[in-house]
């Protein structure tokens, strides 16, 4: 399924505070569009120029397959995968807990590997497959790890939970769930302030011992 979606909100005329920016297009008559690199466009915008034009040149096309759905987006190179998921695609299951790679709440799978989406520039995973918590269940049927988290109460507030579950699935797939000790070590990149760690370990052990293909 091919899906065109871009939720970035264009600035409306009424938002423009500085009239001089509106004149930018006129002023820039001598400038050819191709000569405008994104940085030049950013500078142009800083120098009272039209931000709508700047915006066009600041963005790059990004093709991602997220949870099996193809997305063709236009993004700024500085946009992280996390912000693209949460703010542009309304996939808010992936959480922002620190935005600096220090808590694991934003964990997603890129081409099957768990990564921190807050430190991943969206543009750098162009063409890759991304799986988020929303893509784990098959319709109404929960993924075994989701079931195990439910059964063992591997959470309280639920905020770190999507990251924990994405990490837990990867932990088992990687072969790092062979003992309680190993699970704890390989799940230490996901902070849970509610302190559900023992329950998380129990959930992962159950999935691992269940031997289901996950």
């Amino acid at each position: 399924m091919e899906k065109e979606k871009n939720h970035s909100r264009p600035v409306e005329e009424s938002d423009v505070k500085d009239n001089s920016r509106r004149d930018f297009l006129k002023k820039s008559a001598l400038m050819t569009a191709v000569a405008l690199t994104p940085v030049a466009a950013a500078r142009a915008a800083e120098m009272h120029m039209d931000e709508r034009l700047a915006q066009v040149f600041e963005k790059m096309p990004l093709h991602l397959e997220i949870n099996g759905v193809a997305h063709n987006l236009m993004v700024e190179p500085r946009s992280t995968l996390l912000d693209i998921l949460r703010e542009q695609l309304d996939l808010t299951g992936t959480k922002k807990g620190c935005d600096m790679g220090q808590c694991g709440a934003c964990t997603v799978h890129v081409d099957g590997h768990r990564v921190n989406s807050c430190l991943t520039l969206g543009i750098m995973v162009n063409g890759k497959k991304v799986t988020t918590i929303e893509g784990l269940a098959k319709g109404d049927q929960l993924h075994p790890m989701q079931e195990a988290f439910l059964k063992h109460d591997g959470f309280q507030c639920g905020y770190c939970t999507p990251g924990q579950i994405m990490s837990a699935v990867a932990c088992v797939r990687e072969g790092h769930a062979n003992s309680e000790h190993e699970i704890r070590e390989y799940m230490s990149g996901n902070i849970c302030r509610c302190g559900a760690y023992p329950n998380i370990v129990n959930a992962i052990q159950e999935v691992k011992e269940g031997g289901m293909a996950i």
Partner: peptide
């Protein structure tokens, strides 16, 4: 390497 960081960051 395994003493450093988290598996997510080591994957990046």
């Amino acid at each position: 390497l395994r003493a450093g960081s988290s598996q997510q960051l080591r994957n990046m």
